[in-house]
Nucleic acid binder design. Structure first.
Lengths: 217, 217
DNA sequence: CGGCATGTTGAAACGTTTCAACGAGAGTGG
DNA sequence: CCACTCTCGTTGAAACGTTTCAACATGCCG
């Protein structure tokens, strides 16, 4: 089990079979909309390449990003008839698209059904962690948490920069922070020698233990 | 569908049958623990009477309440082997307890399985709304949102006070606010004539439209 | 090279937290 | 029945962190 504030949506369970990893491939260009809040849910998706943000817009114009989907993640599995958020391609995106009817049919198989159940409950747990983070953590902690999440447990060093899937604005919208505060938190981590920033889309993690410490592991 | 920031965990789908509404009854006294984060999940629960808070404690000692369960709500359905949060009785509580093995057996029935799926996905959607609220709303808005949620769409007036399931501290921990800020937000609503406070556990809603307006509907 | 999106920094305004003191209410025992 | 006590709620004032608005820097693409 993972510490509070640090578990994010991730398809732990190998559900490669849910689509059989074959099916219609769809491509979206940077900024394109995959579906909109309220849309009839016709498809479920599995990420192949790129990053997708899943968000809701508030009446006051603010946007809350609930998830950022990365390769191997699946989304749009909720049984509800309509999507409760909007999915957009952050960069160029390649994904597998599977008709819901096909999912429904496949879910007759108990193990697949179980996997879907676990994925859904994983998402719930992730949302609760996210929620906890927004409720009680400061800006630097949130950014640290996000970076640790992006590493997915892999090791990044001076030789291997971490690729950011999104820009500062999206990071802020995910973390519940303004773009500027996000930026300042990143700068903070940089001047503390915990990270380095070769360019806007990469981060070098110089001191992972300290980063994890700030993130609250 | 409900506006952002205002849909909370609620068992919309009538899953009365999941336990058949019969089964071992359990009683807990105010403050007693029902299960702790990390516990092996042996049971699932259905609320009969009282209120239960479901929360996680952060390393810094803060507590985030993810949900407050009220009569008819079910919880502990997650397929994970261990609970990812702690459940405690807020006041005296009566609930139905069903062994997980029984749930598993019953989930062979497609319609029941579907209902569980929908409940889980309802929880996810609720968590996302909660998350959105914590990310972008001010104190008064959050409190308004909580009060609107408590009405469950029923009509409360001067003659029928709304019963609060919990005290200010729990409200704050649910809303991601300090106890004092929660209190001040409530006072704000009172001096604006939107609510009245006959006593600490009741609220009279004098102007529901305005309350909903502040809540963001 | 210019133009545009994106990122960074500064300073003031704003809202929340924190610490501290006080008030109100419920329950208990004299 | 009152007084005591304990918990819970309320209010105040200062400290703190985030947002906002503004200006400027950087990098990318035509």
């Amino acid at each position: 089990m993972c510490a509070p504030g640090c578990r994010f949506l991730r398809s732990d369970t190998t559900t490669e079979s849910w689509i059989g990893n074959s099916g219609p491939i769809a491509r979206y260009l940077r900024g394109q909309t995959i579906f909109v809040e309220g849309d009839q849910a016709r498809w479920s998706y599995k990420m192949i390449e790129g990053a997708v943000r899943y968000s809701r817009i508030l009446p006051d114009g603010h946007r809350q990003i609930h998830d950022i989907f990365l390769p191997d993640d699946t989304f749009g599995l909720e049984p509800a008839g309509t999507f409760s958020g909007t999915a957009e391609a952050i960069g160029d995106v390649v994904l597998l698209r599977c008709p819901r009817s096909c999912i429904a049919r496949q879910s007759e198989q108990p193990d697949l059904r179980q996997a879907m159940m676990e994925m859904l409950s994983g998402s719930l747990s992730a949302a609760q962690d996210h929620l906890t983070m927004l409720g009680h953590r400061g800006a630097k902690e949130r950014v640290a948490c996000f970076l640790v999440y992006l590493t997915k447990g892999e090791i990044f060093g001076a030789d291997r920069p971490l690729e950011l899937p999104c820009g500062r604005q999206d990071m802020g919208d995910y973390l519940g922070l303004s773009l500027e505060t996000t930026c300042r938190a990143i700068t903070d981590l940089r001047v503390s020698q915990i990270i380095a920033i070769p360019n806007r889309r990469q981060i070098i993690i110089r001191d992972l233990p300290r980063l994890r410490g700030i993130a609250g592991i």
